[in-house]
């Protein structure tokens, strides 16, 4: 009996019409394709994109060279050298992140006592030369300056859950 039903169903191409039904249904629904990069999908405020070093509003860099991020980094992607700056404060002379090593786990951000190293929500980056994979201190600070607005907004939104 089942064999007969299956024979008639296949003869009438019912499964094909069912599939086409889904297709036609979506012709009348709003599209969810985005025109990247002109259009962006919404991101979580906890999105972990490229790194940045932040500054205080007065322009002073936040990083105090405590090296906790370097210690916590599971991929050993961070390298820091530090010394005493002329004003007696503890500062980095070198702060480098190797983007090829980084696994974007966000531990550096978690460990930072002064919210200096952060992962921004910016992930649209590329490099043409393998040497460019290492971000130095000036590049990281520049990234921080560029994304400060979104960084502080994201952190504000997330503050209640920290």
């Amino acid at each position: 009996m089942n064999k007969v039903i299956r024979y008639f169903k296949s003869l009438m191409m019912i499964e094909l019409w069912q599939g086409l039904g889904v297709t036609f249904k979506h012709m009348f629904k709003p599209k969810f394709t985005v025109f990247y990069p002109e259009e962006q999908i919404p991101k979580s405020n906890r999105f972990r994109g490229i790194h940045a070093l932040r500054r205080y509003p007065n322009g002073e860099e936040r990083c105090i060279a405590c090296k906790l991020c370097e210690a916590v980094c599971p991929a050993l992607a961070i390298t820091i050298d530090s010394e005493m700056r002329d004003d007696g404060t503890r500062r980095t002379t070198r702060y480098e992140i190797d983007l090829f090593k980084c696994v974007y786990c966000g531990f550096c951000e978690e460990s930072c006592p002064v919210d200096s190293i952060v992962l921004t929500d910016f992930a649209d980056f590329h490099m043409e030369d393998p040497k460019e994979s290492i971000l130095d201190k000036q590049q990281l600070l520049a990234l921080g300056d560029r994304f400060e607005e979104s960084i502080s907004k994201n952190r504000q939104q997330d503050a209640a859950y920290r």
């Binding site: 060279a65 405590c66 090296k67 370097e70 210690a71 050298d81 530090s82 010394e83 005493m84 503890r90 500062r91």
Partner: peptide, 9 residues
């Protein structure tokens, strides 16, 4: 030596 390294490194 001030501020040049951490004990764990």
């Amino acid at each position: 030596f001030r501020f040049s390294a951490r004990a764990w490194e």
